[in-house]
């Protein structure tokens, strides 16, 4: 399993557009991908579950990837988070 933490820097937090970007990216991988904030965990392949986390600026989110392409998935998501959020 691969895991990393990212602190949201976007002022609006994970709103609909970046959530859409993340979900699209996540759906390109076979691994199970989740994002957690505090006690809440959401499936990164499902837009409602990502938006429902309600992550805001300054929130540390933990991304976990588990599966055959976990390395690539984690790297791609980290890059994607840095770029959009």
């Amino acid at each position: 399993m691969k895991e990393f933490t990212y602190v949201i820097t976007d002022k609006e937090g994970i709103h609909a557009r970046p959530a859409g970007v993340l979900v699209k990216k996540a759906n390109g991988f076979k691994s199970k991908l989740t994002m957690s904030l505090g006690e809440k965990t959401g499936d990164l392949k499902r837009i409602f579950s990502v938006m429902a986390l309600g992550a805001k600026e300054g929130d540390p989110v933990v991304v976990r990837a588990e599966g055959e392409d976990e390395e690539q998935a984690a790297a791609a998501l980290e890059a994607c988070l840095k770029e959009t959020l």
């Binding site: 609909a16 557009r17 859409g20 979900v23 699209k24 499902r46 837009i47």
Partner: peptide, 16 residues
């Protein structure tokens, strides 16, 4: 246009 993209993802959401 972005909003229509989000709407598509909502309809693809497995929980939904």
């Amino acid at each position: 246009a972005a909003i229509f993209d989000i709407h598509q993802l909502m309809l693809d959401d497995q929980d939904y």
